[in-house]
């Protein structure tokens, strides 16, 4: 068990190290560099000044050395300064992260609360009309462009009915808990529609797979009601793979959040990463991307460990 854990941990650390270098190199390939931006804002700078500045900030060093300098500074707690926000990167990230946690967390809880009953309900009668309907819904949810779904929700609830705000974080000059909640309804709804479609499919498939097993026949043979067979035996055993698949799907969840936040102008991590890339805010983009990668990999590692711990049948080499 501990050998398995250590191996997986080392593997994940290696992937994070490789990804941090790749993302660092990619950010370096974005249009312009910090000195070009300085030049464009101060026309008095001569090419000689620019070269001096590049040397001063170490931008003329080879990529390997530049990465090393950045890495040692980052591990020492210095993640740099965000150009577009005029504040240290860490200070910018904190509130954005909290807002994303709120959006994703709310939608996750609601999605699970809908998807599990829906999936089990469909799995109770495989290939019936209701199963067909749930299946169709989950196909539709996975095939609809997320930003289009968001636009339609904005049109219906903000433009047409006028019930909810079209986007943003809060009413300027108002704020407060209820006001923010008001603004959260549409983004959470958009994200929830997508998540339910994905999750319900896993729940249905895994429950049907468990329903074919021998112990289900035994449970029925000893006279249990269909309801307790379904909930007490099938669902409980199906939960292990469901938890794993949902955790493995974290990258998709985050991609959905990025789109939702961008369309609804909700200032979370996803929108922050997108805006920082467009604004050439290299430090912020780099840290935001690495953080998203780190969390996704951690979710994967967590899924593997949970799977191993929850299911004693799995032998760990």
């Amino acid at each position: 068990m501990s050998a398995f854990l250590i191996r997986r941990l080392v593997q994940s650390l290696a992937v994070i190290a490789i990804m941090s270098f790749l993302v660092y190199a990619l950010i370096g390939l974005m249009p312009g560099d910090p000195i070009d931006i300085m030049i464009s804002s101060d026309p008095k700078l001569t090419p000689a000044d620019a070269a001096r500045l590049r040397a001063l900030y170490g931008l003329d060093l080879p990529i390997g050395e530049r990465y090393w300098n950045w890495l040692t500074a980052a591990l020492g707690g210095d993640l740099g300064f965000s150009r577009s926000h005029n504040r240290p990167v860490l200070e910018v990230m904190g509130p954005h992260l909290l807002r994303t946690l709120l959006l994703m967390g709310l939608s996750f809880v609601i999605s699970v609360a809908i998807a599990i009953p829906l999936g089990v309900w469909a799995a109770a009668r495989p290939y019936s009309l209701r199963d067909y309907a749930v299946n169709l819904f989950s196909f539709a949810g996975r095939s609809a462009p997320p930003f289009w779904l968001a636009l339609i929700l904005i049109f219906v609830f903000a433009v047409w009915l006028g019930w909810l705000p079209a986007g943003g974080l809060e009413t300027i000059g108002k704020g407060g808990f209820w006001d923010r909640l008001h603004y959260l309804v549409l983004p959470v709804l958009a994200l929830t529609l997508l998540n339910v479609a994905g999750f319900a499919r896993f729940v249905r498939a895994e429950t049907i797979a468990v329903m074919r097993q021998d112990f289900i026949r035994t449970a029925r043979a000893k006279g249990l009601t269909e309801r307790s067979v379904l909930l007490g035996h099938a669902l409980r055993n199906a939960m292990i793979p469901i938890v794993t698949i949902v955790a493995l799907d974290f990258g998709t969840l985050f991609s959905g959040a990025l789109i939702t936040e961008t369309v609804f102008a909700y200032p979370g991590m996803g929108k922050m990463i997108f805006d920082s890339i467009l604004a050439n805010d290299f430090n912020l983009a780099l840290v935001g991307l690495l953080f998203a990668t780190f969390v996704t990999l951690a979710a994967n590692l967590g899924a593997d460990i949970a799977y191993a711990v929850l299911d004693p049948r799995i032998a760990l080499q």
């Binding site: 992937v15 490789i18 990804m19 993302v23 990619l26 950010i27 390939l29 974005m30 249009p31 312009g32 493995l248 974290f250 990258g251 998709t252 985050f254 991609s255 990025l258 789109i259 996803g270 990463i273 997108f274 890339i277 467009l278 983009a285 935001g288 991307l289 998203a292 990668t293 996704t296 990999l297 994967n300």
Partner: peptide
């Protein structure tokens, strides 16, 4: 490793590369 990556943010960076 590739399956585990957050694909959309990375695609955005790749699409922005000069």
């Amino acid at each position: 490793g590739v399956i585990a990556l957050p694909i959309l943010p990375l695609l955005i960076v790749l699409a922005a590369v000069d």
